[in-house]
């Protein structure tokens, strides 16, 4: 009997967790991807500044830029694999993908500059611009995610209200 109760409890916890993790809205996923991309671009900008000021080793800067690129690729993949059901989410996804792409290009330019191709200093404005864009988009995505979460919670509490929102 105790075993059955334990099994039921485990299944319930796993189901609840699966429900909680699986119900992330498109805006929430895009918010996470934007945050991940912003962190990577800001990291790249910081290490480029350090390299320009001779405060870090080229090997460390190169490794850091490689890590930033990996994070941007992961963020880009997550954003591009996000399913949307509203046109506003689709627009947000496009904007996020563009900004991540810009950040990725800037980080790649910085990596190239570390290898002697081009100027490292010239990459700093691109990195800062990409960071600004991602910051704006993160704010947008965060607001959209909060709205989506609020409407989901409202739908959970009062199904009819959700239906009204859906009809509207």
């Amino acid at each position: 009997m105790a075993r059955v109760a334990t099994s039921v409890a485990v299944v319930a916890v796993v189901a609840l967790a699966a429900a909680l993790t699986g119900c992330a809205s498109a805006a929430s996923t895009l918010n996470d991807a934007t945050g991940q991309g912003l962190a990577a671009v800001q990291t790249a900008a910081l290490v480029v500044e350090q390299e320009l000021d001779d405060r870090t080793f080229p090997t460390t800067a190169t490794a850091t830029l490689g890590d930033a690129r990996r994070e941007l690729v992961a963020a880009s993949t997550a954003a591009s694999e996000t399913d949307v059901t509203a046109s506003s989410d689709a627009e947000l996804r496009e904007a996020v993908l563009e900004a991540l792409d810009e950040g990725l290009r800037a980080v790649n330019d910085a990596r190239d500059a570390m290898a002697g191709l081009g100027s490292l200093e010239a990459t700093l404005p691109s990195l800062e611009q990409a960071a600004e864009q991602l910051e704006d988009l993160e704010a947008q995505a965060s607001t959209a995610a909060q709205t989506a979460a609020a409407s989901t919670a409202g739908a959970g509490a009062e199904p009819s209200a959700g239906a009204e929102v859906g009809r509207a």
Partner: peptide
């Protein structure tokens, strides 16, 4: 303050270099 969430060891040493 720079919104950098740490995901790699290279980020851990950034403040020290700074």
């Amino acid at each position: 303050p720079a919104s950098i969430d740490v995901t790699s060891l290279s980020q851990v040493v950034l403040p020290v270099a700074e």
